[in-house]
Design a protein around this nucleic acid. Structure first.
Lengths: 150, 150
DNA sequence: TTATATCTTATTAAAATACTCGGGATTTGT
DNA sequence: ACAAATCCCGAGTATTTTAATAAGATATAA
């Protein structure tokens, strides 16, 4: 039940883009450095995000990437689905063409995995890049408040 | 974000044991046959469950396994944790000694994985083998009702 | 025209997964 | 006493997935 680096790096990279909105195209190199990710590896991930319309690219020198939509329109679930595939604790309850099993209609185990799938999806779809930006702002102000009282 | 066969087979096997309570020790061979699982592989999984006290074993001919506690005392989360390890979409939010990262206190990404972890744990800990037995009974009666009206 | 980027495909090392195999220990029934 | 059934344990292995790395083609700003 682990997320792979694809999903983790992807969310980090997207959040990085959100934090640098308005600064023009952001190069993978700078994202890779800030987030400590291999640039080449990140390239592969971002390729998928671009095809899904979650980022836009600008080629050439001074090029880079921009968010494909407003941050409040990009759910973490969208990012995870592009990079990790449909949410599916088991193949028989995959969000996308689940693997039909002959016992499916009376399989009690299956209903558990459905609930797990739905609870994961609900969390990931309730959080957007905008939410994350707000959280980051809040953490920042809490920190400075804390510093003040020391 | 997939469960491995360990978790899936383990839950299936435990549910099988629950369904055959009162019939004395149930052999791995019969469980493996009913659930279409390799017997040798199942042996390894059940070994862990036994060490965790979720099943009791009876050795020798006519031996087998019994539930280690009442079905309403065995949560699906208990089974999963024994077979798949602590619930942890990422190492930094593992239920058991999470891998501390220097940026943890102001990491916005981390809070997402915490929410995912908690929602998975909540689902898995809200379902017991007893719940599953009730569900199975309900499905069975719905099926016979359906048959009646045909 | 050169440096800076994105884009694309192929290869690979390491780890995890899902078994398989062989043999030993324990108990029951004959 | 013996054979059959069963749990118990450790090692080995094929396949798949993961996480990169590498190499080069394409596009654009300066």
């Amino acid at each position: 039940m682990k997320l792979s680096t694809k999903g983790r790096y992807g969310v980090k990279a997207m959040f990085d883009l959100a934090q640098h909105m308005g600064e023009g195209p952001i190069s993978l190199k700078s994202i890779a450095e800030r987030q400590s990710i291999s640039e080449h590896y990140l390239e592969q991930l971002v390729s998928g995000l671009r095809k899904a319309g979650l980022v836009k690219s600008v080629r050439g020198a001074q090029g880079g990437y921009l968010l494909g939509k407003e941050p409040d329109k990009i759910k973490i679930g969208d990012i995870i689905r592009v990079l990790e595939g449909p949410i599916a604790p088991t193949d028989c309850v995959s969000e996308e063409d689940p693997e039909i099993c002959s016992k499916a209609e009376f399989c009690v185990t299956r209903t558990i995995w459905e609930k797990v799938r739905d609870s994961i999806a609900e969390v990931l779809d309730s959080i957007t890049l905008e939410t994350m930006l707000e959280d980051a702002k809040k953490i920042e102000s809490d920190r400075s408040l804390y510093m003040y009282y020391i």
